[in-house]
Amino acid sequence: MDGIIVKEIKKSFNKATILKNIDLQIKPGKIYGLLGRNGAGKSTLLSIITNRIFSDEGTVMLDGNTVFENDEALGQLYLMSERNLYSNSSKLRQLFNTTELLYGNFDYNYAQKLANMFELDLNQKFGKLSTGYRTIFKLIVSLCVPAKYVFLDEPVLGLDANHRELFYRELVDNYVKTGKTFVISTHLIEEVANSLEHVFVIRDGQIIVDGDVDDVLEKAYLIAGPVKEVEQYTAGLNVIGQETLGNIQGSYVFGELDSERILPDTVTVEKMDLQKLFINLTNARGEKK
């Protein structure tokens, strides 16, 4: 069981390079976060993994077999995308039936339960739904489809706070009950951060962080204190961002600190959360260098 192995994926549209050289592995039974700003290449990557578009180079393998044009492999993947591929004239119930027909074993009871919770009338046509309810409908399918790997691209688009809360609950609950693998692609990190076990951070078509959340955060520090001392203490370290207020500076460091250096009394070392780390890794200043 190797799960999904993405190898050396490259993709350009017209002349713009979207994905430069993507390598990653998705192991079964985890919740992954694919984090990146808008336009970083998240959706393109997910579309390539699920065979919706083609990469220029590279391969996607599931348990040792290529995913490309492979019904059996594709039947284990489900991508809930921002783009709506369901036909507008279909009733929601019919779309459940189609999912059942083509994926098999659709969990109708759970779908009905979720529809009640989200107050979604299943006798409506897909085209009549608002953006938020289209998202809800697609989330319901994602949670009830028997695919082993579920990819959620911007899963809370258009949802209000209550519905987002409801979704995160059900996501974790569904994950515990079914052991499915979820890959959540989003630029809204705060709410989902604690649910993730492993993160990929993508910037400009490249994976810049790939690791378990705990391990990644272990190396993410906020060094704060007077400008001069902080500059001295962080010199040569991987500083990914800074904030200054008057004479006080906070420097975000991603990577090992230098244990040889003595920490001045005036300087404090704190940990960063995922949101902060992400913002600093992917902001415009980080892109310079």
């Binding site: 609950r169 974790v172 649910s195 076990e197």
Partner: peptide, 13 residues
């Protein structure tokens, strides 16, 4: 499971 679910924390955590 209950804690994971109620607070959206990964069960492994």
């Amino acid at each position: 499971t209950e804690i994971s679910r109620d607070f959206h924390i990964n069960p492994a955590t």
